[in-house]
Amino acid sequence: MLRKVIVLFVAMMMLIVTGCGGDKKETAPQKQGQLQALTIGLMPDVDSIPFIIAQEKGFFKEEGLTVTLKPFKSAMERDSALQSGNLDGAVSDMLAETFAKAGGFDTKITSLTTGSYKMVAGKNETAASIQELKGKDVAISKNTIIDYVTDRIATEGGLSANAINKVVIPQIPARLEMLQNGKIAAATLPEPMATVAIKNGAKLINSSDKLGINPGVMLFTTKAVTEKEKELQAMYRAYNKAIDYLAKEPMENYIDLVIEKAGFPKDVKGTLVLPNYKKAMAPEQKDVDDVVNWLFTRQLIQSKYTYSDLVDNRFIRQ
């Protein structure tokens, strides 16, 4: 009799242990379903503002996502961090994506960003048009979106790309400082640095807005695109929440926060005009083709890449 009791007791204990084991298995998928963190590089321009808002207003957190935002002052520093594996993605441009592809570093454009790039002449410069800047020093960052916009402005104004003397100043704050100190005749700057220059007396020559071009994009490494699909989808949901916030919230309610987090000059307060931010969308094929053709014509790339070579829009489909 005692033996039967012992056997029954052991059998009951096994059932209890098995039941506990079943509970653990049920919680395992929840742990596996937790989102991985993302690290994103930002530039000191208005393209980065929606990411700052999404971070500071808790929209990433609402989506169960942890995001680290890292600021950079030049495209070269940003691209180096991306290629060394220190970033999952970055606010970037179509040129950077094409160069990465040509260099064997696999990244993908996942969406457009909303930016604005302006060529401005210094306050003491007599030139008021691109034609009057012929032969004069214009500060740029070489082989970047700034270089591309500068060429487009020159062409639109009836000049060849080499009709102006391009001075390479990679860091955006240094470019602004040299313009304001009269060291160069003009500079092509992203917003809000262009707004600061104009506030301090610089004259607008032309802009990407007037030309109807927008080569600014989000780039992510192929590793991130492959291994963090849910994370990117969550990121874009938070991004779109930030766009809704920016559309309805008065700027005075967040401008101090943006100035602090983006590293903008305090001069932008009261003068900055933000672009008409749009929710995440894929770039137009024509815009991608125009950039590829510009790079190919200048012999900066050896092959003409297709839209599908450079763009993966599956994370932003509604």
Rank of each mutant, 00 (worst) to 15 (best):
residue 177 E to C: 03
residue 161 A to Q: 05
residue 181 N to E: 08
residue 181 N to A: 08
residue 164 I to A: 04
residue 160 S to D: 11
residue 179 L to T: 01
residue 175 R to W: 08
residue 172 I to N: 10
residue 173 P to K: 01
residue 165 N to L: 14
residue 168 V to K: 12
residue 182 G to F: 05
residue 183 K to C: 10
residue 186 A to L: 12
residue 164 I to C: 02
residue 194 A to C: 02
residue 163 A to V: 11
residue 188 T to E: 02
residue 180 Q to S: 13
residue 163 A to D: 15
residue 168 V to D: 15
residue 194 A to V: 01
residue 185 A to Q: 13
residue 172 I to L: 14
residue 176 L to S: 04
residue 167 V to Y: 02
residue 181 N to I: 02
residue 194 A to L: 00
residue 187 A to Q: 04
residue 172 I to S: 13
residue 190 P to W: 11
residue 163 A to P: 09
residue 170 P to D: 08
residue 176 L to V: 05
residue 183 K to I: 10
residue 164 I to P: 04
residue 190 P to T: 06
residue 194 A to N: 03
residue 162 N to K: 14
residue 170 P to S: 09
residue 160 S to P: 03
residue 193 M to R: 07
residue 191 E to L: 11
residue 177 E to W: 03
residue 161 A to P: 04
residue 194 A to W: 00
residue 177 E to D: 12
residue 174 A to Q: 08
residue 192 P to K: 12
residue 168 V to T: 14
residue 189 L to A: 00
residue 184 I to P: 07
residue 182 G to I: 10
residue 192 P to H: 13
residue 182 G to P: 05
residue 164 I to R: 02
residue 164 I to N: 03
residue 187 A to N: 04
residue 164 I to G: 02
residue 184 I to L: 04
residue 166 K to D: 09
residue 173 P to A: 02
residue 183 K to M: 14
residue 171 Q to V: 09
residue 169 I to S: 03
residue 160 S to K: 11
residue 176 L to E: 08
residue 185 A to L: 11
residue 170 P to Y: 06
residue 191 E to H: 09
residue 185 A to H: 13
residue 168 V to A: 13
residue 167 V to E: 07
residue 186 A to V: 08
residue 171 Q to D: 10
residue 172 I to P: 01
residue 181 N to P: 03
residue 168 V to Y: 11
residue 188 T to L: 03
residue 163 A to I: 10
residue 185 A to E: 15
residue 174 A to C: 04
residue 165 N to K: 15
residue 165 N to T: 15
residue 186 A to I: 12
residue 161 A to K: 10
residue 175 R to A: 08
residue 194 A to Y: 00
residue 178 M to D: 09
residue 186 A to K: 10
residue 166 K to W: 10
residue 185 A to C: 11
residue 162 N to C: 11
residue 188 T to K: 02
residue 166 K to M: 10
residue 180 Q to I: 07
residue 191 E to K: 08
residue 189 L to Y: 00
residue 190 P to F: 10
residue 187 A to S: 06
residue 160 S to Q: 08
residue 187 A to I: 05
residue 181 N to R: 12
residue 184 I to H: 01
residue 191 E to C: 08
residue 163 A to T: 10
residue 164 I to D: 03
residue 175 R to L: 06
residue 167 V to M: 06
residue 172 I to A: 14
residue 184 I to A: 07
residue 160 S to T: 11
residue 188 T to R: 00
residue 184 I to R: 02
residue 183 K to E: 15
residue 192 P to W: 11
residue 166 K to L: 13
residue 173 P to E: 01
residue 185 A to N: 14
residue 177 E to K: 12
residue 184 I to G: 04
residue 183 K to R: 15
